[in-house]
Design a protein around this nucleic acid. Structure first.
Length: 355
RNA sequence: GGUCUUAUGAGUCC
């Protein structure tokens, strides 16, 4: 079975999900009667969900629950994985149904099950429902740091910092202390609601505490906050201060600042920073390029925008629906249908159509 | 020994 796991995982990671499913069927036939391990199935369910094949994942789970021809019995991870996939697809009522289904099949929900549902609801703007689920968690399965973090994030995303702080206080009264995630969530909420001073204060608090130092995500969150508040100087200060804390800026850090520069109308400086990140060994991704292309389109530099699309293709970076809609929209608006069709031809020639 | 849950960046003035 371990051999099968290695093979199935390799296929999944290569995006060859049908091959992975075929291997499972092959395993079911060859190992008939032996008890197999659900982790192989769980891995495939996860991969199917991640690539948007939720119905296929549901089919596999159903096969397992029904005990169809040689299929392995599900375990709690099977249900948790399926539930997370449904949440990410925005299919929340079906995710809630999984909780009913598993109990019907005699499986007890665990902490991961509840946390999955809580974060799914909270992340979809239904933080009130998330709190109801949290309050209904049974003895022996009480909320942990992840539960609180998901709830706090839900309130922050809804712009309700006050409620987030109430749950922060409640968290502090438990055996779980706010961690790097908690602080980063709050910093993000404060940034998005325009309270940069308080967000910065929290960063200072983190740096003075031992058990929850800021990481690259924390810095990125605040860097983006300052960029969006048009305070590029402070954003750059943070870039230096993250280095002092042993945090290497990553593609998100650079893309945020490049976005800030472009938004300020300084696409040239954006390209300068692009060069700098490349020279530091940080590879630009589809978002980095899209940010720059947006800047070029807004500046009416459609020829350069098309050139950058070709450059990203050459760089091995595949444009997605956001990139394309942006460029084609820009071209059509200024009536450059010839350029649009030329670009489309170049994309098709490279066989790189995403989304 | 292998599988599940929490935080950060892009377009559409809709």
């Amino acid at each position: 079975h371990y051999t099968y796991f290695v093979l199935v995982r390799a296929h999944c990671l290569a995006g060859e999900l049908q091959a992975a499913m075929d291997l499972i069927r092959d395993m079911e036939n060859k190992c008939r009667g032996t008890s197999s391990n659900p982790s192989i199935y769980n891995f495939v369910i996860h991969a199917l969900c991640k690539s948007g094949k939720v119905p296929e994942a549901m089919g596999l789970v159903k096969k397992m629950v029904d005990g169809e021809d040689g299929a392995c019995r599900p375990d709690v991870v099977t249900f948790n994985t399926m539930m997370a996939g449904l949440c990410k697809a925005g299919r929340l009522s079906e995710a809630q149904q999984v909780l009913q289904d598993m109990e019907k099949s005699g499986f007890a929900a665990n902490l991961v099950t509840y946390n999955t549902l809580v974060s799914g609801l909270a992340g979809a703007g239904r933080v009130g429902d998330a709190v109801v689920v949290m309050r209904g968690m049974p003895q022996g399965c009480l909320p942990d740091a992840l539960t609180y973090n998901a709830i706090i994030n839900g309130f922050c995303k809804a712009g309700d910092i006050q409620s987030a702080e109430i749950f922060l206080e409640e968290m502090k009264s438990t055996s779980f202390s706010p961690d790097t995630f908690t602080y980063t969530i709050l910093i993000n909420g404060l940034c998005k609601s325009g309270n940069l001073p308080k967000a910065d204060e929290l960063l200072q608090e983190m740096m003075s505490r031992a058990n929850c130092s800021p990481n690259v995500v924390t810095f990125n969150t605040l860097v983006d906050g300052y960029c969006k508040a048009s305070n590029l100087d402070r954003a750059r200060e943070l870039l230096s201060s993250m280095l002092e804390h042993g945090c290497a800026p990553d593609v998100v850090t650079y893309s945020s600042i490049i976005h800030g520069l472009c938004r300020a109308g300084d696409v040239d400086q954006g390209f300068g920073l692009l060069q700098k990140m490349i020279s530091k060994g940080c590879k630009p991704d589809v978002v980095t390029y899209t940010v720059l292309i947006t800047g070029l389109c807004k500046a009416g530099k459609m020829v350069e925008a098309c050139q950058l699309v070709r450059r990203m293709l050459d760089d091995g970076c595949t444009p997605n629906a956001v990139t394309y809609s942006l460029v084609f929209d820009g071209l059509c608006k200024i009536d450059r249908l010839k350029m649009a069709s030329d670009l489309l031809a170049a994309i098709q020639e490279k066989g790189r159509v995403a989304d």
